[in-house]
Amino acid sequence: DWEDIVRFLRKLFELGEEVVIGDWHNHHREEIKRLIEWLEKHF
Rank of each mutant, 00 (worst) to 15 (best):
K33P: 01
G16N: 04
E17K: 14
D23P: 02
E40S: 11
F43S: 02
V20N: 07
I36F: 14
K41F: 06
F8Q: 06
W38H: 03
D4I: 14
H42N: 07
H42C: 06
I21E: 11
V19A: 09
I32S: 01
N26F: 08
H28K: 04
W38G: 03
I32H: 02
E17N: 13
L12Q: 00
W24Q: 09
F13D: 00
V6S: 02
R29L: 14
R7E: 12
K11F: 15
E3G: 09
H28A: 13
G22D: 07
R29G: 07
V19K: 04
H27N: 08
D1Y: 14
R7P: 00
F8M: 11
W38F: 09
R10V: 10
W2H: 01
R10S: 10
H25N: 12
W2A: 01
K41L: 05
E14F: 06
R34G: 04
I36E: 01
F13S: 01
D23L: 09
V19W: 08
I21Q: 08
H42I: 14
L12A: 01
H28N: 03
V19M: 09
H42E: 05
E40R: 10
G16L: 15
R7T: 02
D23E: 03
L15N: 02
L12Y: 03
E37H: 06
L12K: 00
W38I: 06
W24N: 09
L39A: 04
K33F: 11
E14W: 12
E37D: 09
W24V: 06
I21L: 12
L9K: 00
V19I: 12
H25T: 07
R29H: 11
F43T: 03
K33G: 06
R10P: 00
K41P: 02
W2Y: 03
E14T: 06
I21W: 09
R10T: 13
L35R: 00
R34E: 06
E3Y: 09
V6G: 02
W2C: 10
I5K: 02
W2S: 01
I36M: 07
K33E: 09
L39Q: 01
R10K: 14
E40L: 15
V19P: 03
R29Q: 08
W38T: 03
H25Y: 14
I5S: 01
D4S: 13
L35H: 01
E30I: 10
V19F: 04
K11T: 10
D23N: 07
R34F: 08
I36Q: 02
E3S: 13
V20T: 09
E18W: 13
D4H: 10
E17F: 15
E37N: 03
K11M: 13
D4P: 07
I5V: 07
E31S: 13
N26E: 11
R10F: 04
D1R: 13
W38Q: 04
E31H: 11
W38M: 04
R10H: 10
E14N: 05
F8L: 09
L35M: 04
E18D: 07
H27T: 10
V6K: 09
R7K: 12
V20H: 10
H42A: 09
V6R: 03
D1K: 11
H27Q: 10
I5Y: 04
L12F: 06
E3R: 13
I32W: 11
I32Q: 02
F13I: 08
H25C: 10
G22F: 02
L12C: 05
E40G: 06
V19N: 05
F43V: 05
K11H: 07
F43R: 03
E30A: 12
L39Y: 04
D1W: 15
E37K: 07
L15V: 04
R29K: 10
W2G: 01
E18H: 14
